[in-house]
Design a protein around this nucleic acid. Structure first.
Lengths: 252, 252
DNA sequence: ACTTGGTAGACTGTCTACCAAGTGCCATGA
DNA sequence: TCATGGCACTTGGTAGACAGTCTACCAAGT
């Protein structure tokens, strides 16, 4: 997230300058709460969000809610219509494609830099995450799988040491996590085999291979999503934005 | 001093939905005003921004200022410290490097997609910008050069057709424009020769070449910045980063 | 001289109340 | 059936208040 490490001076202290517990602003908590509610489907796509309603729901006043909504708007989670309110964003047809294309660029570069800077501990942690993810995947725990997937990607970007890549990729990944859940079971095992190859490339410090593997990995994900949506004759008719109340979210 | 004017957006809207006279929210105008003031140095790096002060300065109330400041914080223009306020961000030593590395990834991919989707009109506009930029550069108009440079890069990302790349690259480019100005005169002519090669690759639809050229271009910029900072004893007296322990604040 | 403790001022974070203007919806009427 | 007018709702923005916190400064103690 936003880093406060000032120290423009020559000698920034890399060793633990651990700041003690700083009380989080309410708007931050509201922001977190809302994204979580959007991701887990509590706030369905297209739903009209009213400030006072959310404020009451969360036990705060309008102000923090407004500020959180504006941030959500800036990051594309909701669409703010002046004078009417916020609607939970409804992803466009090609949006996932674009999102994953952006992710490919960001994370491929991250993987390259991660391979360049990887430490022993990093690699160990990567291997651990791969193992955990594979276990989740085999046991059919979709939620755990998606979460671990996000953690793995997040760690790799952090290993790049580039705060901009970290920030952007974090935003993208969070969005992907939102859209991606229905795809996860389809990708399944293949995804984690690719993760393993990726980690191997990073551990060997092979930058090109890491970047390439990450790009292919994301590309496969993109294709999987595409196939799922067009290819599979799923009995699901295109969501005609009708009666969002009809049925509850299927569990996937 | 500076007053918010509901001024005409400098943004060119090529074609499409023309929203009839949508009065821009104040927070938006405030945001624009503040970024501009940060870029042109009216608000110096490290300066403490006080909400009521800015509010008075811009002729609005605290709320729009707060909202603008929070957005500026999210995008890295200022650092918001809880309970204290906002300080204009002071770029760290390695920050420009990281910024340009991120730009390389984003714009290289954009250039690839731009080459894929380029239309005749796009290419014509690109050529025009190259010409304008070169003219500015030769006439020594730094500000115009930097602005045209930004426009060219912006157009290329827009040609990618990927809204995420557009968004991220826009953020990065604006930051680059902030840091970059002192570098512009050094890069000079070489930069625009590279632009020409880049446009050529795009016009030929050569994706790989476009991506590669863009990457090298950004890389050269990065190197130029680096050299300028370490090698050349620039006539710029370093802001010294003197600790404010002694004196509170200069007059103003 | 150096640390400790206290004090005062400044600023943010949040809440409340209020008003103007814009938006969507619905009933009315042709 | 379809346009019109009106109404309720929601945001955008303003003002004021208050607690908590951060900073600087000063005084007393060691």
């Amino acid at each position: 997230m936003t880093t406060i490490s000032a120290g423009p001076g020559a000698g920034a202290e890399p060793t633990g300058v651990r700041h003690v517990k700083r009380p989080t602003p309410l708007r931050e908590s509201v922001y977190e709460a809302l994204t979580e509610m959007i991701i887990d489907g509590t706030l369905e796509r297209g739903r009209h969000l009213v400030e006072v309603e959310l404020a009451g729901m969360l036990g705060v006043s309008r102000q923090p809610v407004r500020e959180a909504l504006q941030r959500l708007n800036n990051e594309g989670w909701v669409d703010l219509r002046p004078g009417f309110g916020a609607m939970v964003h409804v992803p466009a047809e090609d949006e996932v494609d674009q999102l994953l294309a952006a992710r490919a660029a960001l994370e491929s570069e991250s993987a390259r830099l991660a391979a360049r800077h990887a430490t022993k501990e990093d690699v160990a942690r990567l291997r651990e995450l791969c193992k955990i993810g594979t276990t989740y995947q085999e046991s059919g725990d979709i939620d755990g799988t998606v979460r671990t997937n996000a953690e793995l990607h997040s760690l790799i970007t952090q290993m790049s040491g580039n705060r901009f890549l970290v920030d952007f990729a974090a935003q993208v990944d969070r969005r992907v996590r939102w859209y991606y859940t229905p795809v996860a079971p389809v990708r399944g095992a293949a995804s984690w085999r690719e993760h393993n190859r990726l980690v191997k490339a990073i551990s060997e410090g092979d930058e090109d291979k890491a970047a390439q593997t990450m790009r292919e990995h994301t590309e496969h994900t993109r294709k999987a999503y595409h196939d799922l949506q067009s290819g599979t004759p799923s009995p699901e008719p295109p969501p005609e934005e009708e009666s969002p109340r009809r049925r509850r979210r299927t569990t996937n």
